[in-house]
Nucleic acid binder design. Structure first.
Lengths: 145, 145
DNA sequence: ATTATAATTGTAATGATAACAACTTTGTTA
DNA sequence: TAACAAAGTTGTTATCATTACAATTATAAT
């Protein structure tokens, strides 16, 4: 998988896997490549719905499931009540600002995490989630003092 | 916070913070110290309910919120549809077996994760979640071949 | 072109969590 | 110890995200 796969890369990838490139699926896929802000289902649905008024939320859920199974999309569950989705990219961590809610990506070497405890485990997926306050919110707080 | 806080440690900690030690709260707290298997609300409620038939699920939710705010309990959201709770212990990662569902703790040095990308961020909380197959399930699979 | 398969849609069901008001317990003051 | 206030508990109801399902529509294959 490429570091920042383009829409065209992803279309090819789906074709290779014999996944139908329906209008709705392409639309969700394109949305995710252009909005790498870890959107929720609701954000995805609401935005695309403006372009495709007939779009159903169920289709968004179905499409995301297909894309996840194909390994093109990754689920982010930092908070239990807000599932987010991301075009799959190389290993990186997620930082959620508890003040403004923004989710930031950050570089991380996942290999550093290999613990002896997991010697005999088959690891399929690694997630690193941090929480705290982002620089912008930190400086806003200082201004308000 | 201690590595493996005992029930008594935790009681003291609550007293220090002026949190009422009601029968129900102590019961939830004791349950968590004795069941360090990352239980869900439902597991906690069902088990304690056997001892305290009048216990309400709302109380379990309320109690968990209080304990989380006090920093004694940590939320684990590996999967978006199953929130789990854990007595707060020193930095460690969580591995969920996709085959049997068991969640394993593993040692990890969270400091290793410090990325230059987060230099100006205030980090309050670090979570590491892995998924895969545990040794037991791996060997079962081989036997069935 | 026809048929079979797959995808989409809208509605209804499910299930976890939160809101709420009534009731009970606890702690405090006299 | 009695009376009061504050806090905690309870059960019900509401909410919201997600899934199940059946009908319809689109796509692919022969």
């Amino acid at each position: 998988m490429l570091l920042k796969p383009s829409f065209e890369d992803l279309k090819k990838e789906l074709k290779n896997r014999n996944i139908n490139l329906s209008y709705q699926r392409l639309s969700v896929l394109e949305y995710l490549t252009q909005n790498r802000c870890h959107p929720t289902v609701d954000q995805i649905f609401t935005d695309i719905h403006k372009e495709i008024p007939t779009l159903s939320k169920t289709t968004v859920y179905n499409t995301l499931r297909v894309l996840i199974e194909a390994g093109l999309v990754r689920v982010i569950t930092i908070e239990d009540n807000e599932t987010r989705y991301d075009i799959e990219v190389k290993d990186h961590g997620h930082f959620k600002c508890e003040s403004c809610g923004t989710i930031y990506d950050f570089c991380i070497n996942m290999d550093m995490l290999n613990s002896g405890d997991l010697n005999n485990f088959k690891i399929n997926d690694k997630n690193v989630y941090f929480k705290g306050v982002c620089p912008r919110c930190l400086s806003n707080k200082n201004e308000n003092k």
